[in-house]
Simulated scan of single mutants.
Amino acid sequence: MRVYRPAGSTVSAPCICYVHGGGMVTGSVDGDDAKAAELARATNCVVASVEYRLAPENPYPAAIDDCFAALSWIAEGRHELRIDPRRIALYGPSAGGCLATATTLLARDRGGPEIACLMLVSPMLDDRASTPSSFANTGFGAWSREANLQAWEAYLGEDFGTDRVSPYAAPARADDLTRLPPTYVDVGDLDLFRDEAMDFAQRLMRAGVPVELYVYPGGIHGGENLAPSADLTVRVRSRRHSALRRALRVPSPAAEHTGP
């Protein structure tokens, strides 16, 4: 774990458990260091970034075990971290969205820790990759259908493509989505994960979970990494930060930069 505390934060601050992306096969706390630090600054929350084990060397359930252990450590270490255990969010981009959702399912089924908000950014949720967008959207050099299938196979091993895949491995397979925390989902309309993200958000709504869903015209998977200063990137990030502050009851700053 790497913990980021904003300057001037107080005792009982909210905490965001940040789970990096990378298809479960790449990525690291170091690689997302700047993103986690910016998230702490923008939300005025403590951010705890998880260094989980990667496939294929460490297939399912290694990564989800690490993420659940991290969430439990955050909740149990609330006094040391000076956080409010009632205001913990899980935040996951791409594969981090898969692991954040799976961790939320585990927390529900194991009776805790309590999660106040789940934030999913272009989440990678369904190993079956059978939606129209998973075929139509090429990845534009950022994350292709081929890379997606290879990553799922590395993560799931011999269970890949079978009915043995657990919903804790691929959350789109979960039948019961009740009693999950309020969830924020955003995805680009040119993202290969567009349809599975939208379908998951709609299923959450039908299960009675409060959901914010945003689909951005012209957005591709990983587009904000390719163009971090683009107007779309700035607007999308601002909306996420505002949603997190609302969910975690953090006072909004007097003004927030929303574009050039």
Score class of each variant (00 low, 15 high):
Leu118Pro: 11
Leu125Met: 06
Thr103Asn: 03
Pro181Glu: 03
Arg194Ala: 10
His241Gly: 02
Arg206Val: 02
Glu146Phe: 06
Thr178Met: 05
Ala107Pro: 10
Ala147His: 12
Pro210Gln: 09
Gly157Phe: 01
Val187Leu: 13
Leu99Gly: 09
Asp199Gly: 12
Leu213Pro: 10
Arg179Phe: 00
Asp191His: 07
Thr178Ile: 00
Arg108Gln: 01
Pro182Ala: 15
Tyr216Thr: 11
Asp189Pro: 10
Arg173Phe: 03
Tyr155Phe: 15
Ala107Met: 10
Gly222Ala: 08
Arg194Ser: 00
Thr101Ser: 15
Arg110Glu: 09
Arg145Asp: 02
Val211Thr: 12
Tyr214Cys: 01
Ala136His: 15
Ala100Met: 09
Pro182Asp: 14
Asp126Thr: 03
Trp152Met: 11
Leu180Ala: 06
Gly222Leu: 05
Glu153Met: 05
Val209Pro: 04
Asp195Val: 03
Met124Gly: 09
Leu106Asn: 05
Arg194Phe: 04
Leu106Trp: 11
Pro123Tyr: 03
His221Pro: 01
Val211Lys: 12
Leu177Arg: 02
Ser242Arg: 14
Val211Pro: 11
Ala154Ser: 15
Arg145His: 08
Ile220Leu: 05
Ser122Ala: 14
His221Lys: 08
Leu106Gln: 14
Ala100Trp: 04
Arg110Trp: 06
Met119Phe: 13
Val187Tyr: 11
Asp175Tyr: 01
Trp143Glu: 05
Tyr155Met: 14
Leu125Gln: 09
His241Lys: 01
Gln202Tyr: 13
Pro167Lys: 08
Gln150Tyr: 00
Pro113Gly: 08
Met205Gln: 13
Asn225Cys: 05
Asp175His: 09
Thr178Glu: 09
Gly161Thr: 01
Arg108Asp: 10
Leu120Pro: 12
Pro182Cys: 11
Val165His: 13
Leu213Cys: 13
Ala174Glu: 09
Thr138Asn: 09
Gln150Cys: 05
Glu146Leu: 04
Ser238Met: 12
Glu224Ile: 03
Val211Cys: 06
Val187Thr: 08
Tyr214Pro: 00
Asp175Phe: 03
Met198Glu: 15
Met198Lys: 11
Cys117Ser: 14
Pro132Gly: 02
Leu99Glu: 09
Ala174Met: 04
Ser229Ile: 08
Leu192His: 02
Ala129Leu: 08
Gly141Thr: 00
Arg128Pro: 03
Ala170Gly: 10
Asp186Ile: 07
Leu105Trp: 04
Val211Phe: 13
Gly111Lys: 01
Tyr155Thr: 14
Pro167Trp: 08
Glu196Thr: 11
Ala129Met: 13
